[in-house]
Write a protein that binds this DNA or RNA. Sequence first.
DNA 1: TGAATTTCTTAATCTAGGTTAAGGAGAGCG
DNA 2: CGCTCTCCTTAACCTAGATTAAGAAATTCA
Lengths: 202, 202
Amino acid sequence: MYAALLAHIARYVTLTPAEAELVADHFTCQPVPRKAHLLEAGQPGSASYFVLQGCLRLYFITEKGTEQTTQFALENWWLADYSSLLSGQPSRCYIQAVEPTVVAVLDYPRQEALLARVPALERYFRLLLQRVAAANQMRWVHFYGESLEERYRFFSASFPGFVQRVPQYLLASYLGCTPEFLSKVRAKTTLGDAGPGTAAKG
Amino acid sequence: MYAALLAHIARYVTLTPAEAELVADHFTCQPVPRKAHLLEAGQPGSASYFVLQGCLRLYFITEKGTEQTTQFALENWWLADYSSLLSGQPSRCYIQAVEPTVVAVLDYPRQEALLARVPALERYFRLLLQRVAAANQMRWVHFYGESLEERYRFFSASFPGFVQRVPQYLLASYLGCTPEFLSKVRAKTTLGDAGPGTAAKG
DNA sequence: TGAATTTCTTAATCTAGGTTAAGGAGAGCG
DNA sequence: CGCTCTCCTTAACCTAGATTAAGAAATTCA
């Protein structure tokens, strides 16, 4: 059931069989249909989600009323609204399934109970969160250091499979531009390889 | 010597006196003159810094050759280049003292040795990094959801002391705009409270 | 004290990317 | 087969914020 999760943990720390069983006991498995929400703004976001299959996104609604995606999570990624998780306050964000998805749910109170019993997991999450911090720092470097066009190129080169998998407008929302603009960039990019425009019609 | 650091740790976990001593043994204390660097691009960023006094910033040089600040750290904040710390690869970033500063230095190999001996610190860093993750998520919400003007207003309302403390052009660099633009925004903001412009000269 | 250096401001001009509007194309369905 | 819904594209126009350039304050230091 949680093989992928236990394998992921095993990348960072070693658990005894008894501990692994304790882990499994503290999670619940939940299928999420496409476009269904695990969290909606206004609710407290009281759990973390580990994606066993499918894809989630975290987004919020801007003042202008548009959806702004700030994170995606594919298989073997964790997703949570940490502000709400830690404060208990209602969330500003939504967590939604981009495709039919299956998640392992870890309720925050149960997480703390689990970590108290399995100290190796403190280490697992510490190492994981260090990587999250590293990824965030790199993201700011890309964000501030590159134009939207460069960010799109970099992103599609780095995660080619992912670009196929999610609709353009969600990718645009994540990169911080409009679908129209992405469309323009893609049109330009495509020209290099046998697109229209060079030869006269016919 | 490390009273502020031990007090910070005590906010999250309880250490025995022996453990506290071990902690102190694994750090070194380092004064950093204004504008001096703790890390420069090209070097591996192999340590984390806890600010005992003063102010650090983390920045990188963009393609255009301008400095882009991505993080500040005041007293009781941690700062590190996590990508470089974890990978051992040369860093893309610089860590510089904005004012005369004193830091507690935790070398990464020594950090891992320390955490192996004081498991409570695994928990301390896990809790800390959860807050870092929360802060990062909020930062994206502000970044994507608000105009530069709104971000400046929010920032100066949230950290009034800080705005006094660092030069405008560094704040601009952090907020992601030019000093010229910040200047324009401030001029507008100031008008409300007795600035020039309403009454005729004299 | 005054000269050098650093920081801040103002204003004219420019541009990346947004907005609006319209149409096209694929997928699921009766 | 055509209808509806979702997604993508193109193109004309618009705006937030950048760039450039020139001074004006404020610091620093001899």
